[in-house]
Structure formats: C-alpha cells, structure tokens
C-alpha cells in the first residue's frame, strides 16, 4: 500500500476480507507470511503496539462510557495528557460534528452517530493507519452514502492511510484510490476503480465488480488488427489480439455498453426479443433473448426512449467493440470461474 492511500477491499462474504485486516491489525495471528508496516515486520508486535486505528463492523463503543470518554480512550490508555491530545480530539469532534453528543451514552445515539463516534475514537488514538471493517454496513442507505464521503474527506484531510473493507461495490468505487478484489482467501486483482470496471484483468473481477454479460465463443482467426469470434453463430470482431493460447474464449461486456435499437439492418447486430424489464431508478434493465438463444442484459439510462420499450418488443443489439473484453476459457469452466460461492 502507498502512504496516504485509501484502499478498499471487496469480495464475496466469507472470502477472507475481515480475516486479512484482522491479521494486519494483530487480532488474528497468520499461519504464514509476513506483515509489514512502514517497512517493519510486525507479525510478533502485539495489537496495542501496531499503531492501527480499527473501526469494527459491530461498532463496539464501550457502553459504560460516554461518547467523550470513548473518544479519549486512546490517549488515556497510552498515558498521554488529555490536555495535550485535546487539539486533535477537538479537531475530530468538529470535523464529525459530534460536539452536542459528547456527554451521551452510546446506547442512545443513532447508528450514524455511533459510527462517527467509533471513527473518532480510532482517529484520536493517534494512529496513522486506519482500518475500517464494513463501517457503514449496518446503516441506512442514505446515511451510508453521506458518511462514506465524510470518511474519505476525513482520512484525506488528516493525511492518513486507510484500509476499508466493504461488500458494497458502489461504496468502494466512490471512495477508493485503489480496490483490492478478494476471493476464497486470495487477492484476485488490485487496481483503480476505473481500471477494475473498464478493463478487469480477471473474469471474476468482471463478474463481481458491476454487472457483465459473458459469452463463450470460438476464435475464428485474426483479421487486420483484431480477431473474429463466433458466439453461438453470431460473428463478432474485436479490435485486439489475444495474449493467450487456445481457441475457446470468453467475451465479457458491461450491459451499459450495449446499444438497443428497433432499426433493422445494423452491422453485426444481434436480433432478439425483450423478455423482462426492471426499473432501477436512474436506469432500466432489460433481459433480451437473442434469436440464437443467448440471454443478454442491457442497461439504458432513464429516458423517454427507454421508457418506450415493452416486453415482447423485437430489438437489435449492437455490442460496442471497444468495450468487449476477451479472456481465455477457464479450465474449471465459466460458471465456476465467476462463482461467488
């Protein structure tokens, strides 16, 4: 990790996100491997000496202490003079707008205020590395959206380094400098949100981050600067050359990069019929079955044109060539390769 970076870890439930950060914090002892903080191996350093601020999924505010006592706990147990730590405490209380709740016991706070207190408590301990374990998981969607930007702002303003575990991809996309994708105890891919969304190097990432259509195809041969692929009788041209051996391939494309038209005779268009329409708020999601029995997901932004589509309408789908991603067919099969179980 880079200094002052905001890193998000995402992955399906049980993939080892929390275990990984607990190893970093010293709560779990790893069976093997080394953990470095500031170029120093910390495997044998006890939790309290690692200098990590940890925000728990369960929030875990001390119920027998007031908000203020919770926030002062870090400086207090380190034997620091509270008056000397006061500047930092005041600054954090200001930033998180917690001044009017300082005397309250945690039990009467709202979920959002409890989470803010937990973050404040972790920050006042003076740690330069902040670990957040699904810190917004138990909050309402609206509060979550507001708090996630506040969190990033706070980390950046204070010049901290943060590791944030979440199962919410949107949350990770919106606040992370880089995202780590995990699966079955392993890191699958690391990249910026844009890289992971537009050019995922791994099939699992393409499936897990956002939504994607996957088609199994056969390489027909090279043509100009690209290759021709047969997907169940539909021929597609991709303007890039594969970096792998083998004829069987997987093509992936995000639903929003597929254009849906009524007009017939479009070049390389796939003909199909709308089977289902789902209203998603800012967009509409269509499930289209093509003439050669391929199910394609298409997403169109909310517009009068998109609202005009009906189930049973015959449509033509144009797949944006530049957005098509090409992968070798996985040995374990496509379904297993993208499975989140």
């Amino acid at each position: 990790m880079e200094d002052k970076e905001y890193l998000c870890i995402i992955g399906p439930s049980g993939c080892g996100k929390t275990t990984l950060i607990k190893c970093i914090a010293g709560i779990i002892k790893p069976d093997e491997g080394e953990i470095y903080i500031d170029d120093r191996i910390v495997n044998d350093t006890p939790i309290q000496d690692r200098g990590i601020g940890y925000v728990f999924q369960e929030i875990a505010l001390f119920p027998h202490m007031s908000v203020y006592d919770n926030i002062c706990y870090g400086p207090f147990v380190k034997g620091l003079d509270i008056s000397s730590a006061k500047n930092l405490i005041n600054e954090i209380l200001n930033m998180l707008e917690l001044w009017d709740r300082v005397k309250d016991p945690p039990s009467i706070l709202s979920g959002g205020a409890q989470q803010k207190t937990a973050v404040a408590r972790a920050l006042t301990s003076g740690s330069r590395l902040l670990i957040l374990d699904e810190p917004l998981g138990s909050l309402d969607a609206k509060v979550r959206r507001v708090l996630r930007y506040e969190l990033r702002r706070l980390v950046k303003d204070l010049g901290l380094t943060a590791i944030h575990v979440t199962h919410d991809q949107e949350e990770a996309m919106s606040i992370a400098d880089r995202i780590v994708v995990m699966r079955s105890g392993e890191i699958v891919e690391i990249g910026t949100p844009l890289e992971l969304y537009l050019r995922p190097k791994n099939l699992f990432t393409a499936h897990f981050v956002g939504e994607a259509n996957f088609f199994i195809g056969d390489l027909l041969g090279e043509e100009d600067e690209g290759v021709k692929i047969d997907v169940n009788g539909n021929i597609l041209y991709i303007p890039c050359k594969p970096s792998f051996e083998g004829k069987k391939v997987v093509l992936a494309i995000r639903p929003e990069f597929i254009i849906m038209k009524k007009t017939n005779g479009l070049k390389d268009a796939w003909r199909g019929m709308i089977e289902k329409i789902t209203f998603l708020g800012s967009s509409l999601r269509f499930e289209v079955c093509t003439e050669n029995d391929i199910m394609v997901i298409v997403k169109n932004p909310f517009s009068s044109e998109a609202l005009g589509w009906r189930v049973g309408d015959r449509v033509n789908l144009v797949l944006s060539r530049d957005s098509l991603l090409l992968y070798p067919y996985p040995k374990e099969g496509l379904e297993k390769a993208i499975s989140i179980e």
């Binding site: 939790i47 875990a60 147990v77 408590r121």
Partner: peptide, 14 residues
C-alpha cells in the same frame, strides 16, 4: 462480547 476488549487494545490499551 470480546470485541470490546479487542477494540480497547487496538486503541493502545495493554
């Protein structure tokens, strides 16, 4: 809930 004790230790408590 042992998480309270762990939380205290992450804050620097022996």
């Amino acid at each position: 809930r042992e998480v309270y004790e762990v939380a205290a230790r992450t804050l620097g408590a022996q």
